[in-house]
């Protein structure tokens, strides 16, 4: 006896909160404790990096060889690195690079992923060729593909973004395609077609808005993963080039000094961990609110 039968019972169905539209969702999101925790973390990190000019105690690039590899103290809260640069300042400025990379990768992979996913899901003729190409890209382990691409493209922020976009856009494409396949079969799509709606109108008015839930959750995931991937790329030397700080290259710079001055890598690492945690909490909250099926299991 499957749970499906039980859940299909009209009486149970009537009692269940319907997937509501518009503002009720927003209100539920604002009441979602995990989501709000994540959002607050992310806002703090974001504000701190944006206000780096105001709150950073030193220049992130200023060498001060008197204080090389200095342990955290009242003057240098996170200590100094091998050039005597203030780690706190570097982390604050480095956040700009790391978060910018995350944001750009999210935007680019969402744009291309959605384009490809909609093409595959909506136009069945394109489905096979397009999605097989995506499968081929996804056959490589994510970060390895990014490392290889970044190595070929060369070390620059833009190249890192391109490498990560190529890596993560296929994943978005797959999720969007799956959502579109479901939406495409809805009778309201047929109704629009009977009325004479063209493909673009149907995609814009019906398919995209109804596929948005999983896409938004995926965006938070890619943001988090890109920040991590930036660190990995930096670690193997194909990340954003020094001296401009990024969380990834601060960690990478500090790795030779881990036994003697662990704070160089530790603090940016912690900041990455907290940021990723915050983003993931937001993602979970969004999924709870946007995907009613998964939510049911949880309660």
């Amino acid at each position: 006896m499957s749970t499906e039968d039980i859940l299909a019972d009209p009486a149970v169905d009537a009692a269940r909160p319907r997937p509501t539209q518009g503002y009720p969702r927003l209100r539920r999101l604002l009441r979602h404790r995990l989501f709000m925790t994540g959002a607050i973390i992310l806002v703090i990190v974001l504000l701190a990096t944006l206000a780096a000019d105001l709150i950073a105690p030193y220049s992130p690039l200023k060498n001060d060889f008197r204080y090389r590899l200095g342990a955290p103290n009242a003057v240098h809260l996170m200590g100094t690195d091998n050039f005597g640069r203030d780690v706190l300042s570097r982390v604050l400025y480095g956040g700009r690079t790391s978060l910018a990379i995350g944001l750009m990768v999210v935007l680019a992979s969402t744009f291309f992923g959605t384009l490809i996913g909609v093409a595959g899901g909506y136009f069945s003729r394109l489905d096979n060729p397009v999605m097989r190409l995506m499968d081929a890209l996804m056959a490589f382990p994510g970060v390895l593909l990014a490392i290889a691409l970044a190595a070929v493209l060369g070390p620059s922020v833009l190249d890192v973004v391109i490498a990560l976009t190529v890596t993560y856009a296929p994943r978005t494409a797959r999720i969007v395609r799956a959502a579109v396949l479901v939406v495409r079969r809805m009778e309201y799509i047929d109704a629009a077609r009977v009325a004479g709606a063209g493909h673009l109108r149907i995609i814009w008015r019906h398919v995209l808005p109804n596929s948005l839930g999983p896409l938004i959750v995926q965006m938070t995931f890619i943001f988090a993963v890109s920040i991590l991937a930036e660190a990995v790329l930096s670690f193997v030397g194909v990340g954003p080039p020094p001296p401009t700080p990024s969380w990834g290259n601060i960690i990478a710079d500090g790795r030779s000094y881990i036994p003697s001055a662990p704070w160089i890598s530790l603090f940016p690492g912690l900041v990455i961990a907290i940021t990723v945690l915050g983003v993931n909490l937001m993602g979970d909250g969004l999924r709870d609110v946007l995907d009613p099926r998964l939510k049911l299991e949880g309660r």
Partner: peptide
């Protein structure tokens, strides 16, 4: 009709109610 509780009655008799009920 739908919402009358007829399936609920059947499931109760089998003790197969979903946890939320």
């Amino acid at each position: 009709e739908s919402g009358s509780g007829k399936s609920m009655t059947a499931l109760s008799s089998m003790r197969l109610l979903p946890n939320s009920v």
